[in-house]
C-alpha cells in the first residue's frame, strides 16, 4: 500500500517522454539536482549540513566539460571522469573538514566552494570565466546523436542512475557504516567509546556525498550543454539544502521528490510570476518548514501511517527526528 504511490510516480515519470515530451529535459535537470541533493541527505544523516556542496557539483561539471571538449567525449567516460574528480576532491577537502561540526562544518565548506567559485572566474583563459565552457554533445557508445535522441537517452540514463543511486544510498545508510554515520548526529562520543573513528566514518559519508553531487553536476553539464561558475555559487549550495528539506531529509526518495517539486515551482514561477519567483520559492520553503519540517515525503509517511497504520520498523533513511535531538 505504502509503495503504490511511489511506484506510480516512477512509472508516470518513465513515460513522460511519450506523454509530455517537452518536460523531458526539465525532468532530466531535476534528476541531476536530485542526485546532488541525495549527497546532502547523506550528510544530514550525520547531522551535518554543508553550504558548499556546489563545489563538487561544479568540479565534476567542469571536468566533464573538459573531457567532452578535449577527447571527443563518450557519455559514460564523461560522467565517470566527473564523478571521479568530485570524489577525489571530496576526499582531499574531506580530510580537513570532517574534523569540524555544525556551523563550522557548514562554513568551511562554504569557504572552499567560494574559493573555487572565485578561481573559476579568475582563470578566465582556462574556464571561460563567467561565460562558461560549452560542452559538446557526447557520443553514446560511439554514436553521434541528434539533440532529440540524445535527450531521450539522457533522460532514461538519468532515471536509471537516480534509481540506482537512491537504492545504493539506501543500502549504505542501512549498513553498519550508515548506522555509525547516524550515530554522529545522535551521540558522537559514544561512537568513539565503541572504538569507532567518527572522523573516518564521516569521511566515508563525505566522499559518497561528494561523488553523488559530482554525478549530478556531470549530468547537468551534458544536459545543459554549458558549465558556468554559477554551478559553484553558494546560492546553489543553499538550493540543494533547500530541496533536501522540501523533499524530506529523512529519506532518499525525498531528494528526488523535492527536486521535481522545486524545478516545477521554479520554472512556472519564473514563467508566470517572473517578477516575484524568488518570493514564491521563499514562501513555499517557509510553509514547508513551519508546517511540515519532515518534508513532502514525511507528510506522505504521516498520511500513510494514519491510513494503514504504522509501518514495519523502517530501514535506514527514514529515521524520524528524535525528540530532543535538536540543539
Amino acid at each position: 500500500m505504502r509503495s503504490i504511490l511511489p511506484a506510480l510516480i516512477v512509472l508516470l515519470v518513465a513515460v513522460t517522454p511519450v506523454l509530455a515530451p517537452t518536460s523531458q529535459v526539465l525532468l532530466t535537470l531535476a534528476f541531476a539536482k536530485g542526485l546532488a541533493v541525495l549527497g546532502i541527505i547523506v550528510l544530514l544523516q550525520a547531522g551535518q549540513v554543508s553550504f558548499g556542496h556546489a563545489l563538487y557539483f561544479a568540479v565534476s561539471a567542469y571536468v566533464a566539460a573538459s573531457v567532452a571538449r578535449s577527447f571527443g567525449g563518450e557519455l559514460v567516460t564523461t560522467l565517470l571522469a566527473g564523478v571521479a574528480a568530485a570524489a577525489v576532491v571530496g576526499l582531499v577537502v574531506g580530510v580537513f573538514v570532517v574534523r569540524y561540526r555544525y556551523i563550522f562544518f557548514a562554513m568551511l565548506n562554504l569557504a572552499v566552494s567560494m574559493i573555487f567559485f572565485a578561481l573559476l572566474e579568475k582563470f578566465y583563459y582556462v574556464t571561460g570565466g563567467s561565460d562558461g565552457l560549452q560542452v559538446p554533445r557526447p557520443t553514446v557508445v560511439g554514436l553521434t546523436l541528434e539533440r532529440g535522441e540524445f535527450e531521450t537517452i539522457l533522460f532514461y540514463g538519468a532515471l536509471v542512475l537516480s534509481l540506482l543511486a537512491a537504492w545504493g544510498t539506501h543500502r549504505y545508510l542501512a549498513s553498519p557504516l550508515g548506522n555509525m554515520l547516524r550515530a554522529i548526529k545522535t551521540n558522537e562520543v559514544r561512537l568513539e567509546y565503541l572504538g569507532v573513528s567518527a572522523r573516518s566514518t564521516l569521511l566515508s559519508g563525505y566522499v559518497l556525498s561528494a561523488a553523488l553531487c559530482g554525478l549530478g553536476g556531470a549530468l547537468m553539464a551534458v544536459a545543459q550543454g554549458i558549465v558556468t561558475p554559477e554551478y559553484a555559487y553558494w546560492v546553489r549550495s543553499g538550493e540543494f539544502v533547500f530541496i533536501a528539506i522540501l523533499g524530506g531529509s529523512g529519506s532518499v526518495a525525498g531528494a528526488f521528490v523535492g527536486a521535481l517539486i522545486y524545478e516545477g515551482v521554479r520554472t512556472y514561477a519564473a514563467a508566470f510570476a517572473s517578477d516575484i519567483w524568488q518570493m514564491v520559492l521563499g514562501i513555499v520553503l517557509l510553509v514547508i518548514i513551519i508546517f511540515g519540517p519532515s518534508g513532502v515525503t514525511g507528510l506522505y509517511q504521516r498520511l500513510m501511517d494514519r491510513l494503514v497504520g504504522p509501518a514495519r520498523p523502517r530501514g535506514a533513511g527514514d529515521s524520524e527526528r528524535a525528540p530532543g535531538a535538536a540543539e
Binding site: V25, A270, S274, W277
Partner: peptide, 16 residues
Amino acid sequence: VDEGAGGEALVSEYRR
C-alpha cells in the same frame, strides 16, 4: 523570460 532566474530556468523556459 527572466535571464536573472539562472541557467536551468532560462533553458527550461526557452524550450517551453
